[in-house]
């Protein structure tokens, strides 16, 4: 793989950021409807890093365990999308969505299922609108819920010789009043990146036409 394929120029980066913006706006709109609270988003970050660095980008900010809803996606490009929270936020989020009527025990019972459904809506909205923009469809797996630190969530292998790069896109979000915050992250394999670059170029051409 040549170096050129590993980099995005400023315009490609802007275009990708805009794609993520579109996706995340959709995701935030879904989340806002679900929790009925203000949700703020950070400007998306787009980095090409090793899986390990991606994990440390999130991991060094998070000392408690994380909980993530993740979905694999396949199509012209493939990878994994994740909705990540600190583990202690999981219940608060479910509580924010289902309202205050439900009892503590019932809430705990349905935590994983509720998170998976929430994640599914948010991530589908995000990836779906991105795919739309690129005029392609993506096949998405069923959502799964994982707990652990960021290295587990990002499948970082102990094998240090694994220096493969991934495209890492993430944003922070926080929900006012509930002290709920987290990340929407995407990891893409680099062979996908080459395809993605082509798709971005087409996207830019369409926009500029």
């Amino acid at each position: 793989m040549s170096d050129a394929t590993l980099t995005l120029d400023d315009l490609e980066r802007d275009a990708l950021t805009e794609l993520v913006n579109i996706g995340v706006s959709r995701a935030a709109a879904s989340l806002r409807k679900m929790v009925n609270k203000q949700v703020i988003l950070s400007v998306p970050s787009v980095e090409i890093v090793t899986r390990k660095s991606a994990a440390s980008l999130i991991g060094q900010r998070e000392n408690e365990g994380l909980i993530a809803v993740h979905q694999q996606f396949e199509g012209p490009f493939s990878g994994r999308a994740l909705l990540i929270f600190p583990e202690s936020n999981g219940l608060s989020l479910v509580r924010a969505i289902v309202g205050d009527e439900m009892g503590e025990a019932d809430l705990a019972d349905m935590e994983e299922e509720a998170l998976a459904e929430t994640g599914n809506v948010i991530l589908n909205g995000c990836l779906g609108s991105m795919a739309n923009m690129l005029q392609h469809t993506l096949k998405m797996s069923l959502p799964g819920v994982r707990r652990g630190n960021s290295t587990i969530l990002f499948d970082v292998l102990d094998n240090t010789s694994d220096q493969s790069f991934v495209l890492f896109l993430y944003i922070n979000f926080s929900v006012q009043d509930r002290q709920i915050r987290g990340y929407i992250a995407m990891l893409m394999d680099l062979p996908s990146l080459e395809k993605l670059k082509k798709l971005i170029a087409d996207f830019i051409d369409r926009v500029m036409a």
Partner: peptide, 17 residues
């Protein structure tokens, strides 16, 4: 110009902000 056009295109496509 290209950056602005991209961002405007984002709005047309569903970006909120």
């Amino acid at each position: 110009l290209k950056r602005v056009k991209l961002a405007v295109a984002g709005i047309m496509a569903g970006s909120e902000i």
